[in-house]
Design a protein around this nucleic acid. Structure first.
Lengths: 141, 141
DNA sequence: GATTACCTTTACGTAAACGTAAAGTATCTA
DNA sequence: TAGATACTTTACGTTTACGTAAAGGTAATC
């Protein structure tokens, strides 16, 4: 039960709703390095996790290069102290970026709330002025 | 004091730390429509707000087309009821996307926390094993 | 044994979001 | 009056992140 679970490229494409081309592209630029069985790519659970992180980064608007920095945080190929120190700096940078995103998102949610309220108000007013066939279920609710 | 405040393209570029080319590009695709004084563009506070919203969307990884949808929420050119209804749908969509981003961000912050902790731990261990010149300020803290 | 469903590589194409250069206009200012 | 600075347009170039053939290998199934 050590390395029992493996995935094909199609498995991952289906699971994450992306194309195989996308997955191969990530390999082209060195974000993924699956094993091979002959020609065919074999993805481990770790590869799957890396892919998940990449796609999360994408949803957050990170470039693939930025995602690389994040994914590499979880890579056990960081040994010496200097690397660890630059690593903490990287983490700090990512944290700052993400924190700013959090602020932006909260602002945007607030904006959406306001926009929705204004919209509802306008709709209410419109229905009141011209309830040509819409006055049916017009309980106060 | 109605429309007293106006900005040049350079003003806005400096304020938001972008190039004038970027601002003109947003106009090319119809995201901004500043007034003109002869050839020269004159930006109102409303234009400035639109630009701010666009850039916020960018930081959140929105495409300019997506940002257009958001910016248009605040545009007073939405009059009739059907438009208002599709508008609420748009708002709902944006809210869902942003909500998912919020989840992603929280996950990522958590991940960063863990990565940082693991990193500190590794550094501590490294200093303990080889304190060649680093044992100086090594109070428990 | 032919079809179907996977997988592979190589390679040119493309949309988005600007960058960058060229060439010209208008306004200060030394 | 000659820069220097800031504005303008036109237009080709570039990067990122894949899309989309083309051409083929392998393996199960009808």
């Amino acid at each position: 039960m050590t390395d029992s679970m493996a995935f094909s490229i199609g498995d991952l494409a289906r699971e994450f709703d992306i194309t195989t081309r996308t997955i191969r592209h990530y390999e082209d630029i060195g974000l993924l390095k699956p094993q091979r069985s002959g020609q065919t790519r074999i993805y481990s659970p770790e590869d799957r996790t890396r892919l998940r992180l990449i796609l999360r980064g994408k949803r957050l608007g990170f470039s693939l290069e930025e995602s690389r920095a994040i994914v590499d945080l979880y890579d056990p190929s960081h040994g010496n102290v200097e690397q660890l120190q630059t690593l903490t700096e990287h983490i700090q940078q990512q944290r700052e970026k993400v924190t700013r995103q959090l602020r932006d998102i909260n602002k945007m949610i607030k904006s959406l709330d306001e926009a929705e309220a204004a919209c509802r108000k306008a709709l209410k007013k419109a229905r009141k002025n011209a309830p040509k066939s819409g006055g049916k279920k017009s309980g106060k609710k």
